[in-house]
Design a protein around this nucleic acid. Structure first.
Lengths: 111, 111
DNA sequence: CTTTTTTTGTAAGATATTCTTACTGTAACA
DNA sequence: TGTTACAGTAAGAATATCTTACAAAAAAAG
């Protein structure tokens, strides 16, 4: 009976991951709140998906809970697509000027 | 040439990356705002580091600007230049054959 | 260079969110 | 039952954000 994250908003899904991460790290809401210098109800509201989480807070939560920041942003993991990396490294062989030109061309070309 | 992000707050550094990413994607503030269904001054305030960016917004910005969400959260994207990453992502959309042609064109282009 | 247009910055009041504090709910356990 | 530990929630105060309009700056045109 896997809990489906479908039909949940991004905020709710992020909330779930934050709660999961906190529990995984063995911290109570109050402990997390103290360590991050925020109020405990704030943690409660965030984990309920009722309060937004800022980018900075995501960084802090990730650090405290020892999880990858990008996982909190609903990415599968923190890794970049290998084929993308390959393409990027190929591009590195070219001069900066040529790359700029390529980018301009790409912006114009149809897919 | 400074470009030193030292002594900047996380918010300011995120702001810089957001602006850099927008410019790299060739979008005006107004275009970005329209595509994200927010007001243009909001983009301005965010890029000035005066307004927080929510986790959800980071996801949307990353998608629109074609950058890695974790890079917006100040992770270092595997030490590859952001403009390279952008080009690589764009390149992925094209057929292998077309990419070879593009690179051939690049080799001919004057510096 | 001067003028015009485009793009971005910013002000101010209205609106909305978040914070703070205190109280409530719930589960575990003696 | 009563107690403890932890999490949820309510309400007003404090902040932040949004909206609209105008101003500044930058870019383009003449």
């Amino acid at each position: 009976m896997d809990s489906k994250e479908y039909e949940l908003s991004d905020r709710e899904r992020i909330a779930k991951r934050l709660k999961e991460a906190r529990l995984q790290s063995g911290l109570k809401q109050e402990q997390a709140a103290n360590l991050l210098n925020i109020q405990r109800p704030t943690i409660s509201e965030i984990e309920a998906g009722r309060r937004k989480v800022s980018a900075e807070e995501i960084i802090q939560f990730a650090d405290l809970y020892k999880v990858n920041p990008s996982w909190l942003l609903l990415e599968d993991d923190g890794n970049i697509d290998p084929s993308l990396m390959f393409a990027a490294r190929e591009l590195e062989k070219y001069k900066q000027e040529d790359i700029k030109k390529l980018i301009d061309i790409l912006k114009i070309l149809p897919k």
